[in-house]
Nucleic acid binder design. Structure first.
Lengths: 201, 201
DNA sequence: CCCGGCAGGTGACATCTGTCACCCCTGCGC
DNA sequence: GCGCAGGGGTGACAGATGTCACCTGCCGGG
């Protein structure tokens, strides 16, 4: 019997996934978490074979949860199931020690097999995303550029961004200009959009 | 027996919802559609009691589907299940003749009851969202302002927006300035964000 | 026919942005 | 000690943006 904990912040999807897995004779859903910290606690106390986790959750992302489990030498393997087919997310997930990465776009039938594969010690990445990611350019941004873009994307001015990051407005402008050049964007809005779409923010 | 068609573009969620409803003795999932047009076709051919539909789908949104069904005097009642708790979406959904509106955030247990209620001719709106929406300000934007904001949000310049909408760049600036003033924003980026978050775009 | 309202436009002005060349530190390898 | 890379900063300039007052043409109602 494969023991699984599910972490997913959308209650309806959480329940639906649980019922989907409930149909499988060799899989047992032993716990459900609505956010990152709860997932971490449940894995610590229940020690399931697999944690099936979303990425975007309150408190902590699924990727952070995976990283924490890795640090704690947990035996639980993490399988990410997410909406976002962004190459940058996949990259970070793999670096965090995740064992599988599926998209919610793919057919539901794939899920149980993915869990079996991961539980058996295998690895698994959504094939479409793997192909995309293999040819995607790597993240060209520096930490500063990322920070500045994050603030720029919700309308802060150079002056405000400078205050927030303790930089002069002129320097903020330089970073944004650099970032736009790297991303082939013609202004901060386009630059943030490109970075966001690639999962670099 | 309540006959239901599900429209949802994320395969995994579609399958999971179907299995969730499969547990209910009085509900039968008779069809599944991965996009708007397919949903419309399925409803036309299967004439289910209820269409359970997402909003954001390829081809046509769930709200548009509901509007088309209304025009066609279809007896099928539409229940929206969506991620987005945006007051503007709810408003438009109701105007389109939708009979229920649930959030994916709410617990899975609510779904089956919602379907029964809608199938029986009742109406149902997620209580939290209903409360929020009741106090939310109405959409203050004109069609022009909306169009301009939509283009501004992905980084087009005044000149480009003008070309796209066949307006002079100066007029575009005026619309954006107007919109920002109405929304209490200090620039086009913030204005687009506010409008988007409220479901006004 | 006249008037008011409304969509669209113009011009002027202050700011903000984007681009670029160049400066100042600090740390580090030699 | 020298050189130099890298983070941060400055100044100047062109062009984009935000704000506002005011103009035009068109339409629908008195």
């Amino acid at each position: 019997m494969i023991r699984v904990v599910i972490a997913e912040d959308q209650g309806m999807v959480l329940g639906a996934l649980a019922s989907l897995l409930g149909l499988e004779p060799d899989i047992e859903v032993v716990g459900r978490a609505p956010d990152g910290p709860a997932a971490l606690d449940l894995v610590a106390s229940l020690r399931p074979d697999v944690l099936l986790s979303d990425i975007e959750m309150p408190g902590m992302t699924g990727i952070e949860v995976a990283a924490r489990l890795g640090e704690a030498r947990s035996a639980t393997r993490v399988l990410i199931v997410t909406t976002f087919g962004r190459a940058g997310y996949l990259r970070r997930a793999i670096d965090a020690g995740v064992r599988g990465y599926l998209l919610k776009d793919s057919p539901a039938e794939r899920l149980a097999d993915a869990i079996r594969q991961v539980a058996a010690g295998g690895r698994l990445i959504d094939p479409d995303l793997a192909a995309t990611a293999a040819f995607a350019p790597p993240d060209p941004l520096t930490d500063r550029e990322r920070a500045v873009l994050r603030l720029a994307q919700d309308g802060r001015s150079n002056k405000e961004i400078g205050r927030a990051l303790d930089l002069s407005p002129g320097t903020v402008r330089n970073y944004l200009s650099e970032a736009a050049a790297k991303l082939g964007a013609s202004n901060r809005i386009e630059a943030s959009r490109i970075a966001r779409d690639n999962g670099w923010l």
